[in-house]
Amino acid sequence: MKSFVLTALAGLVGAVQATVQGFDISHYQGSVNFARAYSSGARFVIIKATEGTNYIDPKFSSHYTGATSAGLIRGGYHFAHPDSSSGAAQADYFLAHGGGWSKDGITLPGMIDLESSSGKATCYGLSTSAMVSWIKAFSDRYHSKTGRYPMIYTNYSWWSKCTGNSKSFATTNPLVLARWSSSVGTIPGGWSYQTIWQNADTYTYGGDSDIFNGSLDRLKALAKGS
């Protein structure tokens, strides 16, 4: 009996601790060794596609092709500029330039990057209610076009200040939490857990380090929409 209990407990601990290494990149990483990243254990990458409604990352296409060839699950992300155009307009632009999703098992739902931007006011001049409405417009448009809600990338400080720590997205949008530390820390916005944790601003094979909170099977399920 004692042996059985210990074995069962070990299995539970292993399940709780299951994670998958990944990373995120943009044109700042001109050359990425996707094959080496895969061989080292990485299984997914999130690639910058667009900003606002007038910028396409010049490396998106080559990065996406390289990630696909290496066998990585991949997806695009959009850097939001809530002060320049509507959330719906930016979702449309993202979808038109690499941010789409298909049920092929290797494509993550798109991600919207919500954080401060150099030279801009922290919350882009929007009130907390206006910011929540902007994010909802982006999210709803993405969902109407793909059947998936986009992942939301943010950090505790920005989300608390700029949305009033809104809980409006906790049951629909997977959270990608940025915290460069040894622990996840406080999770904002009513989310009970983070789907992906950006735990460091460096990764051996390029970009930032990301940790998926679950097993490889669960990562594949996220890609499939199941």
Score class of each variant (00 low, 15 high):
77 Y>V: 06
113 D>M: 03
58 P>E: 10
85 S>E: 06
71 G>N: 12
100 G>E: 08
70 A>I: 12
69 S>M: 08
121 A>L: 14
92 D>T: 13
121 A>T: 13
87 G>N: 05
117 S>Q: 15
113 D>E: 09
68 T>N: 14
94 F>K: 07
77 Y>I: 01
86 S>N: 03
58 P>M: 00
89 A>C: 11
103 K>W: 00
69 S>K: 15
123 C>V: 05
85 S>N: 15
57 D>A: 10
82 P>H: 11
62 S>F: 03
101 W>V: 00
118 S>G: 14
102 S>F: 05
118 S>C: 00
57 D>P: 07
97 H>T: 01
108 L>W: 04
114 L>H: 01
109 P>I: 08
62 S>M: 06
84 S>P: 03
69 S>C: 03
74 R>D: 02
119 G>K: 10
79 F>G: 02
59 K>F: 10
80 A>T: 03
56 I>H: 08
113 D>S: 05
73 I>V: 15
58 P>D: 10
118 S>I: 12
107 T>N: 04
111 M>H: 01
96 A>F: 02
108 L>S: 07
110 G>Q: 11
109 P>R: 04
69 S>V: 06
81 H>I: 06
55 Y>W: 15
110 G>S: 12
118 S>M: 04
105 G>L: 05
61 S>M: 03
80 A>D: 03
58 P>N: 13
88 A>S: 14
62 S>T: 15
66 G>A: 12
99 G>T: 14
104 D>E: 00
122 T>N: 13
67 A>R: 11
54 N>E: 10
60 F>V: 01
112 I>R: 01
93 Y>H: 09
101 W>P: 00
119 G>N: 08
84 S>C: 02
96 A>W: 01
122 T>W: 07
115 E>M: 04
107 T>C: 02
122 T>V: 11
54 N>V: 06
103 K>D: 01
68 T>F: 03
109 P>D: 03
113 D>Q: 02
114 L>V: 09
107 T>S: 15
57 D>G: 06
69 S>H: 08
87 G>I: 04
66 G>R: 12
123 C>H: 08
94 F>H: 11
86 S>I: 03
64 Y>R: 11
97 H>P: 08
108 L>Q: 06
74 R>T: 07
78 H>G: 06
55 Y>E: 03
59 K>A: 14
